[in-house]
Simulated scan of single mutants.
Amino acid sequence: MIMVNTETIPGVEIEKALGIVSGNTVQAKHVGKDIVGGLRNLVGGKMTEYEEMFRESRDIAEKEMVEEAKKLGADAIVNIRYSSSSIMQGSSEVLVYGTAVKIK
């Protein structure tokens, strides 16, 4: 599956737009890692515990979006966008969406 955040794919002709596809997930970190992240917030430094959570969330959301596109018979997803929000301390939602297309 070709995935781009542009409206077109260089060198590829889009035959048909099949519709908007999306995936989302809400993830929470293990309480122990949340405590470590909170302490790191006080002293500063890279918050790897939360980076890991966002990376996992993004991967899950992307996988859902791709599965939805495959069900439509898509060859690619264009104009991909990401959004995230905090649901509560230690958890986050990641939403990814784009346009599923058929290419020639």
Rank of each mutant, 00 (worst) to 15 (best):
residue 58 R to G: 04
residue 23 G to R: 06
residue 43 V to D: 03
residue 23 G to W: 03
residue 63 K to A: 14
residue 20 I to S: 11
residue 69 A to H: 05
residue 31 V to L: 08
residue 28 A to Q: 09
residue 57 S to Y: 00
residue 24 N to F: 04
residue 18 L to F: 05
residue 45 G to H: 08
residue 65 M to A: 08
residue 62 E to Y: 10
residue 17 A to T: 12
residue 22 S to A: 13
residue 34 D to G: 09
residue 38 G to R: 10
residue 55 R to M: 04
residue 45 G to L: 01
residue 38 G to V: 00
residue 57 S to R: 03
residue 27 Q to Y: 10
residue 24 N to I: 03
residue 23 G to H: 07
residue 36 V to Q: 02
residue 45 G to P: 05
residue 22 S to M: 08
residue 21 V to C: 10
residue 43 V to L: 07
residue 42 L to K: 12
residue 70 K to H: 09
residue 28 A to V: 06
residue 22 S to T: 09
residue 42 L to G: 02
residue 69 A to D: 06
residue 26 V to E: 10
residue 63 K to F: 00
residue 69 A to F: 06
residue 24 N to P: 01
residue 51 E to F: 04
residue 51 E to Y: 08
residue 20 I to L: 11
residue 23 G to Y: 05
residue 36 V to I: 14
residue 74 A to R: 06
residue 38 G to L: 07
residue 25 T to Y: 11
residue 28 A to F: 06
residue 32 G to P: 02
residue 76 A to N: 12
residue 54 F to R: 11
residue 17 A to N: 13
residue 59 D to I: 01
residue 39 L to E: 10
residue 76 A to W: 08
residue 50 Y to A: 00
residue 23 G to M: 06
residue 29 K to M: 15
residue 25 T to H: 09
residue 36 V to S: 03
residue 35 I to G: 00
residue 73 G to R: 10
residue 69 A to Q: 04
residue 76 A to Q: 07
residue 62 E to H: 03
residue 74 A to Y: 07
residue 42 L to E: 14
residue 53 M to F: 01
residue 27 Q to F: 10
residue 15 E to Q: 11
residue 55 R to S: 13
residue 43 V to Y: 04
residue 30 H to T: 07
residue 73 G to E: 10
residue 16 K to H: 06
residue 66 V to P: 01
residue 52 E to A: 14
residue 44 G to V: 02
residue 71 K to W: 02
residue 27 Q to K: 14
residue 58 R to C: 03
residue 43 V to H: 06
residue 22 S to R: 13
residue 54 F to E: 12
residue 26 V to P: 02
residue 53 M to Y: 02
residue 16 K to M: 10
residue 28 A to I: 04
residue 68 E to K: 12
residue 70 K to L: 15
residue 46 K to I: 06
residue 41 N to C: 00
residue 32 G to E: 13
residue 22 S to K: 12
residue 27 Q to M: 15
residue 51 E to K: 09
residue 53 M to Q: 01
residue 68 E to N: 12
residue 16 K to I: 05
residue 34 D to I: 13
residue 64 E to D: 13
residue 67 E to P: 00
residue 61 A to W: 05
residue 19 G to R: 11
residue 65 M to V: 07
residue 71 K to F: 02
residue 42 L to S: 03
residue 39 L to I: 08
residue 68 E to A: 15
residue 26 V to Y: 02
residue 28 A to G: 13
residue 63 K to L: 12
residue 19 G to A: 05
residue 49 E to D: 13
residue 71 K to E: 15
residue 61 A to T: 08
residue 48 T to G: 11
residue 53 M to D: 08
residue 40 R to P: 00
residue 30 H to E: 14
residue 69 A to E: 05
residue 65 M to S: 05
residue 75 D to C: 08
residue 33 K to N: 11
residue 29 K to Q: 13
residue 48 T to K: 10
